[in-house]
């Protein structure tokens, strides 16, 4: 099944790519293409031009600097899942990547593409909100800036990227002692996307929860941070009661849930609560074990 015709550019540097994206009418960037090409084949999207950033050098490394990991935008999901650095320093990142789509999709899909597409049913965005990631972008004239995950995800398929801006890397904190992260999802039986995804990052210090980040995807138009639920954790012992209380608080953080034929908004909120409970229990279990 063919897409509509388009012009194709293959820049060799980020600068060139950004220039093309700002100068060519209707141009869109493509890397792995696993969000864009399916939409183009169904002619839901018909960009006039594609700017293929897939070969720009230096954008797929995974490196550690200080207390954070930097993942190049072109790192595929399977590269992240297989990365020793990710597995040791931020296991929840590797684990999340390992559960995106299916093996073939993971071999092509990239972290930068997933974040830029901002599909509410995607996995990475949810984790990025929970973990407090920073997204590095480059815009016209080579201007670089960093956007926090909280500011990056604006709405349904909408990000804080300005026209022509490209994601170049994602920075996530490494897991410190006493810290653990878990990502769980209710997988759609057909698409494999997350109907609801929950990422929970907890820090336990001196027998109580010192910090918590809970990200919830699939329930509203963008990945949410469950701040009421987080507040219910911090300062409390990681007991079943604490976990239950946090899970119960999730609904309050999820206004205007979306729904479809498979799962209503009400059910999505419920799933978010159950998955939060389970993710927290697992995360606390890992820290105390």
């Amino acid at each position: 099944m063919q897409t509509a015709p388009f012009d194709y550019y293959r820049p060799e540097t980020i600068g060139e790519a950004v220039d093309l994206l700002t100068s060519v009418d209707g141009a869109r960037p493509i890397a792995g293409g696993h969000s864009l090409l399916p939409a183009m084949k169904l002619r839901v999207a018909s960009p006039a031009a594609l700017v293929d950033i897939g070969r720009i050098p230096g954008l797929s490394e995974i490196t550690r600097t200080g207390d954070s990991l930097t993942i190049g935008a072109l790192a595929t999901h399977s590269a992240v899942a297989a990365s020793d650095l990710a597995k040791s320093d931020c296991p929840v990142l590797a684990d999340t990547a390992a559960h995106i789509g299916d093996p073939q999709v993971r071999n092509r899909g990239t972290i930068g593409g997933s974040l830029s597409h901002a599909d509410p049913a995607a996995d990475y965005p949810t984790l990025m909100r929970a973990i407090g990631a920073t997204i590095h972008v480059t815009g016209s004239g080579g201007g670089e800036r960093s956007i926090s995950a909280d500011d990056f995800f604006v709405g349904l398929f909408m990000t804080g990227l300005a026209a022509g801006e490209l994601v170049t890397a994602v920075e996530v904190p490494v897991m410190s002692a006493g810290q653990s992260g878990v990502y769980l999802k209710h997988r759609h039986p057909a698409s494999s996307y997350a109907v609801v995804g929950v990422a929970a990052i907890v820090t336990v210090d001196g027998g109580s929860c010192a910090a918590a980040g809970i990200g919830i995807g699939g329930v509203t138009g963008k990945p949410e941070r469950a701040s009421t639920a987080e507040a219910a954790l911090v300062g409390n012992a990681p007991s079943n009661e604490t976990v239950e209380a946090a899970a119960a608080a999730v609904a309050g953080d999820l206004a205007d849930p979306i729904g479809d034929h498979y799962a209503s908004g009400e059910f999505r909120v419920h799933l978010a609560s159950v998955l939060t409970k389970r993710a927290l229990a697992e995360a606390f279990g890992e820290v105390s074990a």
Partner: peptide, 23 residues
Amino acid sequence: LWEGAHYDEEGNLVTGSLMDYAI
């Protein structure tokens, strides 16, 4: 467990692809 074709009131097949219809 998984399969069911679903039409909306206007007669659109909501489960119109392998993204929605779960074999």
